[in-house]
Design a protein around this nucleic acid. Sequence first.
DNA 1: ACCTGAACACCGTTCAAGT
DNA 2: ACCTGAACACCGTTCAAGT
Lengths: 194, 194
Amino acid sequence: MSPALFTVDPERRPLRADAQRNRARLLEAAEAVFTAHGTEASLDDIARRAGVGIGTLYRHFPTRDDLVESLIHSMTDEVIARGQELLEADDAFAALHTWLQSVLRQNATYRGLAGSMVDASCGDSRLGDACQRQQAVGAELVARAQEQGSVRPDVTWEDVIDLTSAIALVIERGPRHDGDRLLGLALDGLRYQR
Amino acid sequence: MSPALFTVDPERRPLRADAQRNRARLLEAAEAVFTAHGTEASLDDIARRAGVGIGTLYRHFPTRDDLVESLIHSMTDEVIARGQELLEADDAFAALHTWLQSVLRQNATYRGLAGSMVDASCGDSRLGDACQRQQAVGAELVARAQEQGSVRPDVTWEDVIDLTSAIALVIERGPRHDGDRLLGLALDGLRYQR
DNA sequence: ACCTGAACACCGTTCAAGT
DNA sequence: ACCTGAACACCGTTCAAGT
């Protein structure tokens, strides 16, 4: 049994029972509303759906990013863990490819999330922390592929993250765009030609 | 002397003198406000700066895209003309590269413009018309590079536009991103390896 | 014809008052 | 300690009244 299932507060001290329930309801409501309308959805909607006052939302989640971060927290952990597993794979290029696909899926969880992630990696919000830990794993995967000689030595991990983020940004704007296809093409450009 | 300098109405009949002046003032104000705050800037700000009522703004430009389209109209024409010139170039791959760089510069005119362009190419706004005419030239440039054997035959012009749009979207979110570098990397992936 | 601005329906954020 | 919702400052959009 995962201890995460019983984690009540990722923050400091235990919450009062009603506060704890409100927090859970807010996350549930935010999940539904973000899924339907993206991460720029109305906060009033979320509070109403959770059956709490708007002030309670702000007390638990002072910024929109706090709400987003709490929602995708476990997913970020999974992406990071997946990246660490993939560091052990034989084919470092394929490992990088697989990992970037999972990053694309993560970014597509809610419309607007990809943008928040890009903004966050240049800032210092709580969402930014998650992004940077994630990017650190990506940097290792890139380095390993370069050591194996399958990624061009002049390419930086920022290049790889930027291209992946770019693709995440464009695919969330309409169904015309195929993320996996674009990612494959972009990776072809980073591949070292023997 | 370019006739464009004397074009008063890209629309229908001549405007009353005061309306014509208001239209010019609105475009001037929008130019300044979009430059400062991006294409999502407050329309009230623009009307106030132009010294007209908000209703006048809506009369001249019923949607935000109408305003954006009028502002970048000549620029879109230039990008299209440049593309047609480049169709005559010897090296079709280099021509495509050069043209896509100009598309990136165009998209970077106002923060938020790249997003509007992507949205527009899936819609039917006036901005969408401009986008589609522009994309048609891009499609020709891609086809020609493929005929020359310098772009992979399995790549579509949508791939090329999508990757370029993706890069335009990511570079407008902070100074960390280098569009020309990312474009170069992406194009390496599309290049046919002899 | 065209312009104006009040009116309406939203939104994010704060904070005094309650329990 | 926590919750509530009114209050404030915004925003986009419409439309009746003016010239």
